[in-house]
Design a protein around this nucleic acid. Structure first.
Lengths: 341, 341
DNA sequence: AGGAAATATCTTATGCTTATCATAAAGCAA
DNA sequence: TTGCTTTATGATAAGCATAAGATATTTCCT
């Protein structure tokens, strides 16, 4: 059923290496032979045996995407899937197979990064993680395959010499805050989450800098911490009614928490944006599901995915190890109804 | 850096085939040798070269998941990712690598099912599709690897002899309708979508049967068709205010449309559940984000994923081609606030 | 035409593992 | 001890494609 180069060689009455050269578009081959072989290959629906080819060339044409957990419809991750999705699309466009893998196999305790690398299953890895344990990091560093961090990990990446692509979170926090200040808000509550990786911290830095740039003080402004889910945003507001006194705006560090807060405010009959303005972060689809539509900071995941794949493919193609690159993408303010602008 | 069986053979001072036998837990090997070889392998972090092994054994320990499009945060698919997610988790537990692939490579026009099969990249395939073109179906049927359809495709599957796992959508539609009728509703509007595959049609069959079982007529009840997105649910209500007259309940054939409808009703100051009850379908997280929380029909994706993987692995392990199986999972009614129960 | 250079093709080895067949060693019965 | 069965291990081939080295063919120049 399946045809190999050997079969084609027999049919075309040439050697196997000639077939290989034809199929690989090599020079040193006559046009006549090439056309003949290619025609036969096509007629028989020839496809390289990936294993044999990998064994010989040490290339798998496969990229692994490693992530810690996959709970896409909640938590900080309703939009996370878009990043991954866009990565897959880009990789397929570039003719790579894509293996998805959890960081650790929950049932065997096996480190999947190690497994993928030492089994030679992939040519490169994209790490989508908030943080990475030292063991995994060491495995990556000792490996000879290129890897890149996508989106997350600014703090960790900063400390190490690795490729990474991220959205400028400081800028995002700055943009959001500047927008609120521009609308006259000074008593702004921050709803954040304690997740490692430093993304949220950077947004807060942006927030603080915006205050500074406007010669304003944020000292009296409350900072509340949840876990990044919708319900934590909701709960934070419910549990801190007292802290709302005097507050005119809320900066939700992600859309889910912002929308959770919005939901709580609605139940408390506090009007948005009339009584309190709300701004979110991520620009997920949910922003435009229920009125008032949520003003948010868009993270251009398409651009990030494209850059990530490009950079990884560059590394995979070049023989020497490239100079590590940090690529930053600029977020964008999306103004809707929730701030009354 | 990377150690091979040949290296281990040299270190242990045995032949390569002995090493292979030890690592593969073969019989015909003395305990002493086995322990020694295993110890060396472990010390050096030995991992089989996947390509070489596949070439020799014709097994890749890899399963492909094929899907048409990936637009996970919208459309009918906010919960679709959970299915896939659960599949991946189950496959990793069973020690398989997972390749994700779009049905067609948008840029090359290449049929990825064919590519995965003829390149021998996978041992089995899971198809997550609403429908499948005849070419792809033919490729699958001619291939010698097992494949299974997950969740979708009841109509298509019924016509062919294939393995498939699905949720009993008829039952789901029946449960939802029965619940509404039990609460005294008879004038129920159906908000559905024209998506092929037959899922929605089956839910409607369940709806109709429930009416019949209660000796009621649904003849005057409106059936509205959108595209499955939140916004289409919203728009359907906005555009059909007139049809709401006399209606006491709405059956949204998926949660997104139901919530879209809910959002529209809210803007029209129609109270849910007091004026109109709403029931959804899918039981996505979003059901409990904004009050009134949406009553819905839960599709047990964990169970479906487990069954899918089990059945596929069975097929992959057995030498002869198994008898094709149809596995149905029962949906479950989740009662919340939106029907006033 | 003769010979070097360029072009086209073939032969063989290689990548890593497993499978098959062959061989050696050990155990046991007569 | 001989001969036979088990048990353990080694040697070689096979799986499929590519790479390197060898050979044949053509082209081109003097």
């Amino acid at each position: 059923m399946v045809i190999t180069t050997k079969d084609i060689a027999k049919i075309a009455n040439v050697s196997q290496s000639t077939v290989s050269r034809c199929l690989n578009n090599s020079s040193m081959i006559s046009d006549k032979t090439k056309q003949r072989v290619l025609k036969i290959a096509k007629e028989h629906g020839f496809q390289f045996n990936a294993s044999a080819r990998s064994l010989s060339t040490r290339k798998t044409h496969t990229v692994g995407i490693v992530c810690l957990k996959r709970m896409f419809d909640d938590a900080h991750n309703i939009h996370y899937i878009n990043w991954q999705d866009s990565l897959i699309e880009n990789l397929e466009r570039l003719q790579f197979y894509v293996i998805i893998s959890l960081l650790i196999n929950k049932f065997t305790g096996q480190n999947n990064i190690r497994k993928l690398i030492s089994a030679k299953k992939v040519d490169g890895l994209i790490i989508m993680q908030q943080e990475l344990d030292t063991e995994s990091m060491a495995i990556l560093e000792q490996s000879d395959i290129p890897y890149i961090f996508c989106k997350y990990l600014p703090t960790i990446c900063k400390a190490r010499d690795v490729d990474y692509v991220h959205v400028d979170q400081f800028k995002g926090g700055y943009l959001a805050t500047q927008h609120l200040i521009g609308l006259g808000h000074q008593r702004i509550m921050c709803i954040s989450a304690k997740v490692s990786g430093g993304e949220f911290e950077q947004r807060i830095e942006g927030y603080k800098t915006a205050f500074g740039d406007n010669a304003l003080s944020f000292d009296k402004n409350p900072f509340l911490y949840g876990d990044g889910t919708f319900h934590s945003g909701y709960q934070l507001i419910q549990d801190n009614r007292d802290k709302l006194k005097g507050i005119t705006a809320i900066f939700g560090q992600n859309d889910l928490m912002a929308l959770g807060a919005l939901s709580a405010l609605r139940e408390m009959h506090i009007k948005v944006p009339e009584d309190i303005a709300i701004i979110g972060y991520d620009n997920i689809k949910l922003c435009t599901y229920f009125q008032p539509y949520l003003t948010s900071v868009h993270q251009p995941f398409d651009e990030v995915a494209l850059l990530t794949c490009k950079q990884l493919v560059d590394s995979m193609n070049s023989k020497e190890s490239n100079i590590k690159q940090t690529l930053a993408v600029q977020p964008k303010l999306i103004i809707r109804q929730s701030c009354g602008a």
